[in-house]
Design a protein around this nucleic acid. Structure first.
Length: 719
DNA sequence: TGAAGCCCCTAAATG
DNA sequence: AGGGGCTTCA
C-alpha cells in the first residue's frame, strides 16, 4: 500500500456557535439539531414520516458549508431531481446562495456526469445514448427476433419480461438463475437461451454506445473498481456525501456510495425503513440496517416528532405498520392532538366514488383549502380514470403524477428518436423507430437498412447507389437522411433542430395518428418550447430520459390559470410530499395490496408500507374510499372487497362513513348539510382549514408549521 | 417475401 | 393505448 500523507484541513476547528449565521439551536428540535450538526464521519438518520427529514438534511447541508466545507465537494444524492433542486434551493436561501454549487441529483444523473467525464478510460464514446426501460425492451425485442428465439415452440418471455429480468440481475446483484427461480419460475427451463440473449444484449449495447439505466450504475461501479486512480480522484472530491431515501437504494447504489466515500468516509444517509416502496426496482430496505455494519463507528440518530399529521392520523399509521417487518423501532408522536379520525368510505361503484371525491374537493376549495394542498392518491395510474372525468366535468384543474410521461408518448418518442440518431448514429433502436414510420418500410427492411447504415466507416446519412433501396420508400428516406445530415453537427440552436425534424415528421405524423393528431400536435409544440431552453442536445435528451416530465403537467403550462392545480398521484410519486387533505381511492383488495404482490415473498409487507406512505401524506384529513362494485372485463360487475389492510381496523381508529344519495345538485347549493354524497357523521366540530396565507409555505414545510394552529370557525366541513 | 390492416388482448409502481 | 397474431395484398 502506498504511503499516506494526511493533508490538514484548512478549517482549523469547528467555529463557535455564535460565529454561525444560522441559529441551528433555535430552528431545530433536539433530535434534528443533533443530526444536522453532527461531526463528520458516517451518520445514519432514521427519520419517520413527517419528522422534518428534509428540513434536517437542508440544515445539515447548510451546516457543512458554514463550517468550512467547499460546496463543490459536497454531493447530495436524492431520489428525484426535483428533490435535489428543492433542497439546494432551500439551503441556498438559508445561506445567501452559498449552497448553490453543491453537486447532486439522482444516482443515475450523477453517474452520467462521471461517465461522460471519464468515458475514454473505459472505452466509451462520450456521446453514448441512454436507454430508458422501454427503449431497452425494444432493443431486446429486436435481438430476440434476430436470434431466432421466437421461432421455436416454447413460449419465450415478452420483451417487457426480458427487460425486467435482466434489469433485476444487475440492480439486485444476483445471477440470472436466481432471478428466474424467484420471479420467473415458468421460464427456468429457458435459462441457457436467456443467458445467451443477455450476453448478446450486453455486447450489442457496448458496440452501439448505448447504456440502459442499470448500465449507468454498473459501468460507473466497474469503472471505479477497475481504475483505482480514478476512484481516488473522484472520492477525494466527494468530501461529504449525503444520501436521501436510503431505504430505497439497491445493492449497486449502496456499493457506489461506498466508493464515493472511500477517501474521506464522510457520509450522511437519511431514510425510513417503514417507507421502502421500490423493491420492484431492486431497492432493498435491508440496506439501511446494514449501514451501521458497513460503516464502522457510524452513529445512528432518530427523528420521531411528527410535525405533519394530527394524532388520529398517526395512530392509524402506527396501527398499520405494527405488523410489518422492520427493525428500527420508532414511535411517531405529534403536538397536533386535535383532529378528525381518518375515514373509510365505501361507495357503490367507481363513479360514485369519483363523485364523492369531486364534491369534497370543490367544497374544501370553497372553504379555503387550496387545490394544490389536496391530493387524490391511488395504487396505479388507471385507478384515477373516473376521478379525472369528474374533475374535468367540474372544471377543476389538476396535474397527474404517475401517468404518461412526456417522453413515453409515442409521437414525442418519434421526434426524440430523430434527435438521438443525429447524436449517436449507432443508436439502432432509434433508427428502427424512425425507419418504421416510413410507409413501405417494415421490420425486415428496417433491419437491413440499419445494418447498411451503421456498418463500417460509412459517412452517416448519405444515400449512394450501393444501398439496398427500393423505389417505394426511397423518396421519403432521402428526405429523412437529408434532415438528419443537416442537424447532425449540433450547431444550430436546438429549437431549430426540432423544427427541422418536425418539418419532415409532420406529414408522417398526421398519417400515423389520423384520429387525434391535433391534440398530439400541441404536445410537439410544447416540446419545441422545452428545447428552446437547452444549449446542448445531449443534455436535453439525457434530461428528458432521466427526469421525465408528466404529460399532464405540460397541459397545465398552457392554461394561464394562476390557481395551482390539484394533485393526482400514484402513491409512489407522492413520496416526500404532504397535503392538508388526502383522498386515497380504490382501496380494493387486489389493487392495494396488488394481486401481483401476493405470490412474492415479502410482497405483502411492501404493499403495507405503500399504504403507510399514502396515509402519512395527510396533515388534517384522510379519506380512504373504495368501490363495492368494480367492472372487470369478461366478468362484468363483480363485488370488490376493501383492502385487507383496512378491514379489521377498529372504528375508534378508522371511522366508517356512509355515503347516501341526496337531493339534486341545485338543491345542494341551497342546503348546507345534505348533498348527493352526504356524510352524516361529519359535523361542525372540525376545525376550519387554515387560510391561504397560513398555508402559503406548505410545500416548504416539513416542520416549521408545528406551532401554527388553524383558526377555528363554526363552518365545519362541507357536507 | 415482406408490409399493412384488422382484430383481439391486456394493462403496476419508476430512474 | 399499444402489442401480438392473423389475413390479405403488392
Amino acid at each position: 500500500m502506498a504511503r499516506r500523507i494526511v493533508l490538514q484541513s484548512d478549517r482549523s476547528d469547528t467555529p463557535a456557535p455564535d460565529q454561525l449565521t444560522v441559529d441551528y439551536r433555535a430552528e431545530l428540535n433536539d433530535q434534528q439539531y443533533a443530526a444536522a450538526t453532527a461531526d463528520p464521519g458516517a451518520l445514519l438518520i432514521i427519520a419517520g414520516a413527517g419528522t422534518g427529514k428534509t428540513r434536517t438534511l437542508v440544515y445539515r447541508l447548510s451546516y457543512l458549508v458554514e463550517t468550512g466545507l467547499d460546496p463543490r465537494s459536497i454531493v447530495l444524492l436524492t431520489f428525484t431531481r426535483r428533490a435535489a433542486r428543492d433542497m439546494m434551493a432551500r439551503a441556498a436561501s438559508l445561506l445567501d446562495g452559498r449552497c448553490q454549487r453543491v453537486q447532486g441529483g439522482t444516482f443515475h444523473s450523477f453517474c452520467v456526469q462521471l461517465l461522460r467525464r471519464h468515458a475514454p478510460a473505459i472505452n466509451l464514446a462520450k456521446t453514448f445514448t441512454i436507454l430508458d426501460a422501454s427503449d431497452a425492451a425494444d432493443v431486446l425485442s429486436m435481438l430476440r427476433t434476430r436470434g431466432g428465439y421466437t421461432e421455436r415452440d416454447d413460449r419465450f418471455p415478452s420483451k417487457r419480461a426480458l427487460q425486467s429480468m435482466f434489469s433485476a440481475t444487475v440492480n439486485r446483484d444476483r445471477s440470472l438463475a436466481s432471478v428466474l427461480e424467484a420471479k420467473y419460475p415458468q421460464f427456468t427451463h429457458l435459462h441457457d437461451d436467456l443467458r445467451k440473449l443477455q450476453e448478446t444484449y450486453r455486447t450489442y449495447k457496448a458496440e452501439h454506445h448505448m447504456l440502459d439505466f442499470d448500465d449507468l450504475l454498473r459501468r460507473t461501479h466497474e469503472m471505479l473498481a477497475m481504475h483505482d486512480d480514478l476512484r481516488q480522484q473522484v472520492a477525494s472530491r466527494c468530501r461529504h456525501v449525503l444520501v436521501d431515501e436510503y431505504q430505497d437504494t439497491n445493492a449497486l447504489q449502496a456499493k457506489l456510495v461506498r466508493q464515493f466515500t472511500s477517501v474521506h468516509g464522510n457520509v450522511t444517509a437519511v431514510g425510513d425503513d417503514a417507507q421502502s416502496i421500490y423493491r420492484f426496482r431492486g431497492a432493498d430496505f435491508r440496506n439501511i440496517f446494514r449501514f451501521p455494519k458497513l460503516y464502522e463507528e457510524a452513529r445512528v440518530l432518530k427523528l420521531e416528532q411528527n410535525y405533519r399529521s394530527t394524532q388520529p392520523i398517526l395512530e392509524f399509521a402506527n396501527h398499520l405498520i405494527e405488523s410489518a417487518d422492520r427493525s428500527y423501532d420508532k414511535t411517531l408522536f405529534s403536538d397536533k392532538t386535535e383532529g378528525e379520525l381518518p375515514a373509510v368510505v365505501p361507495a357503490a361503484d367507481t363513479s360514485m366514488e369519483a363523485q364523492f371525491v369531486g364534491q369534497m374537493i370543490a367544497q374544501l376549495r370553497e372553504q379555503g383549502v387550496p387545490l394544490s394542498d389536496q391530493a387524490v392518491l391511488f395504487r396505479s395510474s388507471h385507478n384515477a380514470y373516473d376521478v379525472e372525468i369528474e374533475l374535468n366535468r367540474r372544471n377543476i384543474p389538476y396535474v397527474k403524477y404517475g401517468g404518461t410521461k412526456l417522453n413515453e408518448a409515442a409521437h414525442i418518442k418519434d421526434v426524440l428518436a430523430h434527435l438521438r440518431v443525429a447524436e449517436n448514429p449507432d443508436d439502432a433502436a432509434a433508427w428502427n423507430r424512425i425507419l418504421k414510420l416510413i410507409h413501405g418500410i417494415g421490420p425486415k427492411t428496417a433491419q437491413s437498412l440499419i445494418d447498411w447504415l451503421t456498418e463500417g466507416d460509412r459517412e452517416p446519412f448519405v444515400v449512394d447507389e450501393q444501398g439496398p433501396f427500393a423505389q417505394r420508400y426511397l423518396d421519403t428516406l432521402t428526405r429523412l437522411l437529408n434532415t438528419l445530415r443537416s442537424i447532425r453537427p449540433d450547431e444550430a440552436p436546438l429549437s431549430e433542430q426540432v423544427d427541422a425534424v418536425l418539418t419532415y415528421y409532420t406529414p408522417l405524423f398526421e398519417d400515423a395518428y389520423p384520429d387525434d393528431y391535433p391534440k398530439r400536435a400541441s404536445d410537439l409544440e410544447q416540446l419545441g418550447h422545452l428545447a428552446a431552453g437547452y444549449e446542448s442536445r445531449q443534455r436535453f435528451l439525457a434530461d428528458l430520459t432521466l427526469d421525465p416530465i408528466e404529460l399532464s403537467a405540460l397541459d397545465q403550462e398552457g392554461t394561464d390559470d394562476d390557481e395551482p392545480p390539484l394533485v393526482l398521484s400514484t402513491i409512489h410519486s407522492a413520496k416526500g410530499l404532504e397535503f392538508h387533505t388526502v383522498f386515497l381511492i380504490h382501496a380494493v383488495d387486489g389493487t392495494l395490496p396488488s394481486q401481483y404482490a401476493l405470490n412474492e415473498p415479502g410482497g405483502l409487507d411492501e404493499e403495507l408500507r405503500l399504504l403507510y406512505v399514502a396515509v402519512t401524506r395527510a396533515e388534517e384529513n384522510l379519506f380512504i374510499s373504495y368501490p363495492m362494485l368494480q367492472t372487470q372485463r369478461f366478468y362484468g360487475d363483480t363485488m370488490a372487497s376493501p383492502s385487507r389492510f383496512i378491514e379489521d381496523v377498529p372504528p375508534s381508529v378508522l371511522e366508517p362513513v356512509e355515503l347516501v344519495e341526496g337531493p339534486s345538485q341545485k338543491q345542494l347549493t341551497e342546503s348546507e348539510d345534505a348533498g348527493p354524497a352526504s356524510l352524516p357523521e361529519a359535523d361542525s366540530s372540525r376545525e376550519a382549514p387554515p387560510t391561504d396565507a397560513e398555508r402559503s409555505d406548505a410545500e416548504h414545510s416539513d416542520a416549521e408549521r408545528s406551532d401554527s394552529s388553524p383558526s377555528s370557525t363554526k363552518d365545519g366541513l362541507p357536507f
